[in-house]
Amino acid sequence: MQLQFTINGEQITVDVNPRARLLDILRDKLGLTGAKEGCGEGECGACTIIMDGLAVNSCLIFAHQARGKEIITIESLEKDGELDQLQKAFIDSGAVQCGYCTPGMLMSCKALLMRNPKPTETEIRTAIEGNLCRCTGYIKIVNAVNSVVTNK
C-alpha cells in the first residue's frame, strides 16, 4: 500500500507492506538506521522517534499509522552541520558509551524539551523511563539534559 507522511521535514510517499512496522520502513526502506530495535515490545526505547511532537516507539506502530503524520528521527537533529544542543550536551557530559540507546534516548529527551523547555529532574527521568541503557546508569544522560535546561 502507498503511504504518505512527512519525514524530517520532507513529504514522501512509500510503498509499504501493511504488516510492516514503522521501524522497519525507516530502517529498511528509507535507510534511516539511527532508530534501533532492542526488544520489539516497547520496553527499551531504542527505536524512539518523534511523531506529531510526541516520543513514540516505532517498533509498536504499524507503518500505515504514520499516514499524514510528521515524523522526526535522530538523523534530523543535526542542522547544517551543527549539532543540536542536546547532542552536544550528550558528548560533553560523557553520556555516550556504546551508543546503541543514544538515538532513542536523544529523541525522548528532544520530545520532552519541545513540550517542556524547563523540565525538573523527575520529569527528565520520567521522559526516559522507557529508554533502557546498560552502559551509563543514566546519570550522565540526565546530567546532559540538565545542562541544556540550565543553559537556556
Binding site: 516497547g42 520496553e43 516520543a55 513514540v56 516507539n57 509498536l60 506502530i61 520520567t126 522507557g130
Partner: peptide, 9 residues
C-alpha cells in the same frame, strides 16, 4: 501505564 512512549500511543 507503560512508559512515556507507550502512553503517547
Amino acid at each position: 501505564v507503560g512508559s512515556t512512549q507507550i502512553r503517547n500511543m
